[in-house]
Amino acid sequence: MRILIVEDDPMMLDGLTVGLGLAGFTCDAVSSCADAGSALRAQGYDAVVLDLMLPDGSGLDVLAELRARKSDTPVLLLTARDQIPDRIRGLDAGADDYVGKPFDLDELAARVRAIARRGKGRASARLEWRSLSLEPGSLSATKDGAPLKLTRREFSILSLLMERPGVIVTRAMLEDALYGWQEEVESNAVEVHIHHLRAKLGPGVIETVRGVGYRLAEEGA
């Protein structure tokens, strides 16, 4: 799941990037309104973590611009200014959630997962398909009730496929979801992860649609 973090404090930005990365998110980090605007125009995100006080303006402006473009990317406002009126103003401006500083990293991760999930129209956190079950909160997976050991990236690929079973997910989409800007993507990285996943899940789960991408195998295939 790819998210954008907008925060001007360098320590906070590093903490969010690393911390949310540990929670399974692929994070892009920017520290100004201008950079946030360009990132949001260039790339689709599953969620945005937005600080309000930025050097070149207010995070609310970024939010307003995003909503003006009819984008419904979920936005979580993260700010030290967390009086009730501030929260109300933020939520009314189109934010999906509001977290005051200081916060608990795990709670923040859960809230980001929640708004991202709702952005995709799902209420339940758990992903299920046939005998497979994914728990995004703990990054744990089971097959036929037995725990499955997956790396973070394998987990991401599988959850992306399981979010919309049967729909083809392109290699570019997978790369977008797996790698932030700063990360070097090797040309066959996605294939390597798919290969490992197939080995763990067994045959007949992930189908390759030649020249397009991947999808979960259809019922009875």
Binding site: D9, M11, M12, D14, G15, L16, V18, G19, L22, A80, G100, K101, P102, F103, D104, L105, D106
Partner: peptide, 15 residues
């Protein structure tokens, strides 16, 4: 102003 560095410290400590 102190909230932001404190939040950063807490986040880094949790990491």
């Amino acid at each position: 102003e102190l909230k932001t560095p404190l939040a950063g410290l807490k986040t880094q400590a949790q990491i």
